[in-house]
Design a protein around this nucleic acid. Structure first.
Lengths: 240, 240
DNA sequence: CGTAGCATTGATTCTCTTCAAGAGGTGTGG
DNA sequence: CCACACCTCTTGAAGAGAATCAATGCTACG
């Protein structure tokens, strides 16, 4: 099944997230132009599938509300969480040049998404150099983030990985002008552990330890940052 | 310093690797057209730097001969090997939409590379939809490969990681119509271990163990595949 | 209010890392 | 052409960190 069906029109020019989905340099008119191609797909419940591996790669998806995870599934049925996506972020870049979806995208909670048809984006990007540039830019940023994460996965302790993850969430909150000190984790400990290369028990223990040391305050899926500096020190392998 | 300087003209239409650097659908004339933008940079000795983090992101580089690794360096000076590139492969995709290079690329041995200026590629890709498509395609393929590797890094044993790496090298040999059963590793055990998230000693031990079990025949940096099926079983987390 | 899924905590096991020593190979200079 | 030095790789022993197994507690939702 394909989520682009039943898309309803949207008005990117009125959307508070448009500066994240599209180049900040885009003016009202340019937004209007791309908005014609964009459509909002029906609300996804928790666990709802945006697209699945093997589906025709027809669109990118911008998260409007909620949260999405992308996964790959290996031959043994083992899942690997390849990314988490929050409002204003674009899911599905990894199949921009592909015929079929490589990953599967699943809503972590009730979520609203906009579909950006790949055909339209490719065509528009030929007319609007800024859009082409932007597509390359978010793709290369994603690659860059992936490299950072690889470094994290191969070189760092459980504590450092968890700290880094929290720091990245804070950074993403800042981009959306949300309070970076009060985080809500939309994913389970299992998904988080999977993404960080840790057992879910280890994630739990690590969060507990960070709380003990007065660095964060954990309450289920709510995390308050108490000592940002210490956290930064722990996750501190910023590679640039 | 920037390797695009002193580039000499090339003739992509006569290069055996052109089907790898550019869309296989490109005809002679299209190749000629892009070739005007492409230039070969001076031969790099072992350890030579193609580009370094912070350099202006001016070009992509196609490997003609030799081999290249890309690395990121964190605040503590720790290296992370983010990729290895063999002839016919394109280095530097991760800074296509960026102002500055994110990674550093280093020749693993005496290497020859062609520079594909980003400006020219962006412009050409507006005239040649197939080129735009191809750029997106190699970028998304790279992302896909990165995801597979993350899965490898987080979920799998040392043995499985090494096996997977050998399998991927075999696959790349096949693409270039080289014998996939006789591999030469252009990188040190240290670089390989770094890339796979293993200590160099573990890589060495694992290769030794695979040899013991009659799966491969290792002699320094030469690896002969003896039992491809067993190797495939060990590395067998093909995610698609 | 009860159940199911999610999260915490504890005890044990295991794989890989680290530290250390030595072997092999390569390139340079005598 | 050989000898030495340097670098890379191999191999061994000990230890650390996280995984796994297992039981209990919490929370949310029907």
């Amino acid at each position: 099944m394909n989520a682009t069906t039943n898309a309803t029109p949207v008005h990117c020019q009125d959307c508070g997230l448009s500066k994240l989905c599209f180049p900040p340099s885009f003016d009202q008119q340019m937004l209007e132009e791309v908005a014609h191609a964009v459509g909002q797909i029906p609300v996804l419940p928790k666990g709802g599938v945006v697209y699945a591996r093997g589906d025709a790669a027809s669109a990118l998806y911008a998260v409007r509300s909620g949260a999405v995870k992308t996964i790959i599934v290996d031959a043994q049925g083992e899942e690997q969480v390849t990314g988490f996506y929050l409002p204003g972020e674009v899911v599905g870049l990894e199949h921009l040049g592909q015929a079929q979806c490589i990953t599967t995208a699943v809503a972590l909670e009730r979520s609203m998404l906009c579909a950006l048809p790949i055909m339209s984006m490719s065509q528009l990007s030929r007319q609007l150099p800024a859009l082409q540039q932007h597509l390359f830019q978010i793709m290369s940023s994603a690659m860059s983030a992936d490299y950072q994460r690889m470094h994290l996965l191969t070189q760092h302790s459980a504590e450092s990985r968890v700290a880094s993850f929290l720091l990245s969430l804070m950074e993403r909150h800042r981009k959306r002008r949300l309070d970076p000190l009060h985080l809500r984790l939309p994913m389970s400990r299992g998904d988080l552990g999977n993404h960080l290369g840790l057992a879910l028990e280890t994630v739990s223990r690590t969060l507990g330890a960070l709380q003990q040391r007065g660095i964060v305050q954990v309450s289920g899926r709510h995390v308050d940052i108490v000592d940002e500096n210490s956290l930064a020190r722990l996750g501190g392998s910023q590679c640039a």
